[in-house]
Structures are given as C-alpha cells and as structure tokens.
Amino acid sequence: MSNPYIPRKAIIESIRDETPDIKTFRIKFKDGSFNFNPGQFVMVSMLGVGESAISISSHPEDADKFVELSIRKVGNVTGSIFKLKPGSTIGIRGPFGNGWPMDEASGKNLLIVGGGCGQGALRPLILDVLRHRDCYGRVEILYGARTPQDLMFKYEHDIWARVPDGCLLLTVDSIPTSVEWKYNLGVVTTLFGKTLIKPENSLALICGPEIMMHFAVRGLLSMGFKSDQIYLSMERRMKCGIGKCGHCQIGSKYVCKDGPVFTHSDLIHEPDKIL
C-alpha cells in the first residue's frame, strides 16, 4: 500500500508563456508511467512552500512523452513555480478526480465553453476532438477571457478554428486601446446566440470562474439544454486531493473525488455555490 501523500518527482522540461499570469509547464516523470483522463488534476508540490491543485492541460496519449500543466500565478505555490527554470524538479501527486465524461461525450455534439484559465482543463478534451474527430458530432468551442492578452493557447487557435463541422468563437470583456481585436466583445454567454448546436444529442462542457459558469448554465438551460447535459469543472480549496481533508466539499460532494466534473443536476441541490 503506497502512501497517497508522498509526491512523485517530475522534471520541468520546458516552460511557455500563455498570458501575463499563466504559463504552461511541460513536465516528465523521473519514474514510471503516468496515466490520466482529460479533465483530471494533480497536486503540485513545491516542497517547503506547499501544494496546489492544477488541471492537466495536455492529452493523455502524450503522457509517456510529457504532461503539461497550465498554471496561473495566484499564490505562494504557483508564484514559486513561476520562478523555476527548465530542469527543476517539482513534486506531483495524482492524477485525481473523475475528468470529463469521455464515454458519454462519444458520438455527441459538444459545446465547449471556457472562461479565463478554465481553458486549461478543457484543452485535453479539445485535443481529443482534434485527434479523434470521428468520435464526436459537431464541436463548437466558445472561449472568453478578460482581454485578448488573457487568452491561453493562442498558438493553437487556428487549429481549433479549423475543426471540421465546428468552430471557435472568441470573446473578451474588454480591449486595451493598443490591441487589435476582430472577434466578439462581451461575456462568454453573448456567444450563445451564434452557436448552431441544439440540445438534442449534445453535451455542454464548461470550465471557468464560477460566476461565468453560473451565467453559462442559465443561458444553456434557456436554450433547452437539460441539467444533466451540462458538465461543469468545479474549483474549490484542496489540500489532499483524495477525499480526506474535507476542504473541497460542496455540500455532500467532494470536488476532488466526486468531481471536479459534475453535471449541473449533480450540484443543483447543494449549498455554498454560485451556480
């Protein structure tokens, strides 16, 4: 029986800037293999500073070569990771949580809605669509951020946009004066009018700030989506990642163990959420 609190060692192979406060760290494990599902997360350890829950942003099929973590600098742990250079060692526990409903999504139209750094958790799903296009119906990616600078994975947007029978719709809350922007202006729900996906045989998969998910859910419900067709990746404080420490509870649900992906109907009767 191994100790679930002991982190494994991983080496940072490369680092790329995504936005002014988000970087993607490509890591490789020093020992053994690593398997995960799209939408799962890991606990990243900076020994001496602490641990943070981070979504995996790369595709499972690449895991034997590398795993990517897109990290926003928000606190002690993430701030310390930002100071690291390629070659540095970090600690990893996991993967944890359930991930996106890949079996359920198979053969369906997907409306993928991302907000801000929530796009990191959605990228493995998007990559899966790109690699296994035949497995899904129509796929529309709606992605919003505060400003054009805050959009992650810009270098891939062209590829996402060219998905056959699909589209990429971008939006931002505001545009700094010096920036050119040819897409939508407004919160991500303002894109809902442009989608072609109808609720039948479709799923909506959402990750972003909870207030954004709240409005997205309302929009989707009014479009005719049912509560159990709407999947949300939730964020809560996490300490252990394995359903023990209690911090991530939303009512009777553990985000780390029962989630982080829930259907809207899973959460509808739970307290202490904005949804």
């Binding site: 359903g243 509870q249 307290p271």
Partner: peptide, 27 residues
Amino acid sequence: VALGGNFRKERSQRLRHWLLCKFGAAG
C-alpha cells in the same frame, strides 16, 4: 480559494455546513 474567493464566507454558511455534516448531509 486562490485570490481570496470563499464559498463559505458567511458564518451561517459555515455553521450550516457543519450541522449538515453532523446530520449526514455533507461530504
């Protein structure tokens, strides 16, 4: 959570969470 967000900021939410827990309705 990160950046100071808190989904049980209100005392009543925290108290309710604990009581729900003792009634078997929490995680």
